[in-house]
Nucleic acid binder design. Structure first.
Lengths: 218, 218
DNA sequence: AATAAATGGGACCAAATAGTCCAGGAAATC
DNA sequence: GATTTCCTGGACTATTTGGTCCCATTTATT
């Protein structure tokens, strides 16, 4: 769904290790620059310079800026999903969720809430500008939520969560709290709102635990 | 804190009704265009055309694009706060919160989740690009949260909310859910995630009610 | 080794876009 | 009503930026 390449003879085309590396270097630079400056505020010359490549290479690997952005959407999505899969695929307990929360908070606190979520910022900037990018981002968010809801399903199946808990809705709520937390933290240049938001969502999930603990979440 | 005008002789400068109207027309057009296309993707020519003005007028009323954007940040902030003040300053009950939620959801559903929150989208786009804009936006968010927390304080003072409820944190959580909901709804082009997120936050607030009702929030 | 195809460097072009300028018209003050 | 100051229209300029092109170099296939 994301790999259309140069449209035509993908098979007839030779490809070298060096070419792959260059393409990767471009995406890596675009990822880095566009995270801090935003997509529209980053120029191709910025990327060319940061990736130590040239114009012809940019246009050799990507038809135009839009296609580069779309590739970045997939690139960044894959990175996030990979990271999140590592942290969520074995989720089976509430304390696992707390650890997951702590990891996100700590990562974000390293830069005082700046930059926010790479996916969320692209979503707001591109959704009303590039339908294909929006669609990809939406799917990535869905996959991310599924990682969470799968964990919640496991917790429900094992009897930790009540039967009337709705893993999908809980996951959506948690994701919204996370994204909203990123946004407020970014605006405030302070992780605090992100912590409060995540704690709210965790508290909400906690209220569906079969044996609610006495102490509040943390 | 937001009105610096042309820096120098604000008093010595005559100003006509027509001038004010033109400035307003420019801001109104910028507000409209930048909401759907984003700040960086909107050109001054777009604004000039949409506002039925000319280049000289843009630069007569604003030093450059950055200052126009900063003025827009304040303009939009004032609009949102005005709207929210109307809906929140008499907040005294949980059902009042539900009505507030419903109004936001309905407004957003009119365009299938598109465009998101005018403040939130600017926040993500400008926070890492214009420190002054970020600061203003952060203050506006704080004022908005205060409208909510003031209402929650009233509910706590009147005995509706438990004493251990923290209005500030509850307001931050609700705001994060709202902003995250806007973001996910925008990415999905569907209000549903925004509803789920807001309901989660309301449910969380509900858990601090002195006499929890039997039925779930709605 | 010869050949063909992929990769690379960077000058160059065209369009978009921010920003300038000035002359004429409108409004306020005397 | 005259004069001064503000406001407006729109042509014009400079810069940025996406995109093209050509030729050299490297890599793979024979």
């Amino acid at each position: 769904m994301s790999d259309e390449q140069v449209t035509a003879p993908t098979n007839r085309r030779r490809i070298s290790q060096r070419g792959i590396a260059t393409r990767e270097r471009i995406l890596e630079a675009a990822n880095r620059l566009m995270l801090v400056r935003g997509v529209n505020a980053t120029t191709l010359d910025d990327i060319r310079e940061a990736s130590q490549t040239s114009k012809s290479q940019l246009y050799h690997h990507f038809a135009d800026k839009q296609e580069l952005v779309r590739a970045l959407v997939n690139y960044r999505g894959a990175l996030v999903l990979q990271r999140e899969r590592a942290g969520l695929e074995r989720l089976r307990s509430f304390s696992g969720l707390v650890r997951w929360r702590n990891a996100l908070v700590q990562a974000n606190s390293l830069n005082n809430g700046k930059y926010g979520c790479g996916l969320g910022s692209m979503a707001l900037e591109l959704s009303d500008q590039d339908e294909q990018a929006r669609s990809s981002l939406s799917e990535t968010f869905a996959a991310w939520e599924r990682l969470i809801s799968d964990g919640l399903h496991r917790m429900r199946d094992s009897g930790l969560l009540r039967q009337d808990a709705d893993p999908e809705k809980l996951a959506t709520g948690l994701m919204a709290a996370l994204q909203g937390g990123y946004l407020l933290a970014n605006a405030a240049h302070d992780v605090a709102p992100m912590e409060v938001a995540l704690d709210m969502a965790l508290e909400h999930i906690k209220s569906f635990l079969v044996q609610p603990a006495a102490e509040p979440a943390r």
